[in-house]
Write a protein that binds this DNA or RNA. Sequence first.
DNA 1: GTCCGGCATTGATCCAAATCAAGGCGCGGC
DNA 2: GCCGCGCCTTGATTTGGATCAATGCCGGAC
Lengths: 261, 261
Amino acid sequence: MTFVTDDAAMTGRLKSEKKYLLDEMTRGDMAPEELPLFRGLPASRRAELLRHAMVHSVSPGTVLFEQGDVPNFQLVVLAGSAQLFGRSAEGREVLIEAARAPDLIIPAAVLTDAPYLMQARVPEPSRFLLIHAAAFRAAVDADPLLAHAVIGSLAHQFRRMVRQIKNLKLRTATQRVGCYLLALSKRQGTPDRAVLPFEKTLIASELGITRESFSRALSSLGQSGIRVDGQTIAILDARRLAAACTPDPLIDGADAGDFLI
Amino acid sequence: MTFVTDDAAMTGRLKSEKKYLLDEMTRGDMAPEELPLFRGLPASRRAELLRHAMVHSVSPGTVLFEQGDVPNFQLVVLAGSAQLFGRSAEGREVLIEAARAPDLIIPAAVLTDAPYLMQARVPEPSRFLLIHAAAFRAAVDADPLLAHAVIGSLAHQFRRMVRQIKNLKLRTATQRVGCYLLALSKRQGTPDRAVLPFEKTLIASELGITRESFSRALSSLGQSGIRVDGQTIAILDARRLAAACTPDPLIDGADAGDFLI
DNA sequence: GTCCGGCATTGATCCAAATCAAGGCGCGGC
DNA sequence: GCCGCGCCTTGATTTGGATCAATGCCGGAC
């Protein structure tokens, strides 16, 4: 089992660099045994699952799977992260979401044995647990605790998607940018600034706008008390920023920041 | 336990009329015992669940719950349908999805005991099974078959949301309209026409555009072989329509039409 | 150090879609 | 029958954001 690595997938379009993600590396480097996914499982069952599993370390640029592929494995992020992209028939590509340790990567596709709707790429050196899809489905069917964990993961992921839809349908580009910054600063625990987790081009595509519009939105939010310095956005006046973009906990939400499962 | 019915919720904004939905009524009027959700459950467990449940018939305009509410019940559609709306801080409101028999209504919120991200309204006379939330969670934890059914429902709903995001981020308004028509005609089994399931204003909001833009998109698609006659859209040349809007099974998909669980 | 390639910004222009504003149609009430 | 209210369409205008194009900036290769 090998992944497509680097090459064509990395030329051109959207890719992500290490530098933005180094700080993330401090978080989450899990041994498979201590995954929350397995919490409370009888040792025998865990061992059984891990017998059908392996750990892969992959380098930046690796494509874990393509959209349209039928899942062979349930992937679980042990360290690093994966980015999920949607691509149109014309070849345009947008970031839909990012998975970090200890997330499951799209259990919805694996459990229904349906083709992936997104491509997964790895932006930084990362490690994944690969559990055979059929074995995973069987284990989930057999073990209530595992099923419970999976349900939690699916539910959180569903809610993230609903939030994103509300964000896209109900807000303007500038509002999305402002709320994104506020959510980021809150998640990072630094009320006076936010550090962008990856390239602006990529964030723009996550927010459903072009990089140029993102850049302009940032500069227009200068009027609302922010200063841009590279990847760091200083938030001088959170009150004013909030007034300009009307954040809403049901969109930018509490649990949008805490991680799946 | 009573729902807010009619009154303020129906004045103004988005509402839905019976006429569009009468044909849907022929489909799906289920006895609680024969829900796919309960398929294979030991009779004792099903009885136990139904002891904590009730059936409610509700009239059009009823609000089942508001966004922000904490779930009291897992609702299951027995007959008719429910529409799920997202509302912004400013009060703008959009349709995010529709649930029909025998769908579960947002199990993601019920199972995580988290506030609803959407409001649910009933556009036509409908019947729902209401299962006490705590009892439902307990039963799902205890019963692998029930858990399996819930996982299927969550997974399908997640995938629908991903499709919608791709639709919004990757396509223009006219493409979305064209693909919507093609998907509709396929789902309805009539390759030469599509019948809109509800008011155009509502469909427009589901597609993330204004009613005016929807109207214009329809008329501009006249050039691609469609004719609009009220709620019925004749598709004279599916080939040409497809060429104009580049449908994609990973967005308009196969299972976007078949219903959850 | 220089060169180069990817990312970001900025400006100019274009375009799609929103908004604003009239009518028109169909249906239910009376 | 007539009226009135929603819903829809159509037109005029505005605007938010995309696209096109040029330049700047930084980091890495050498």
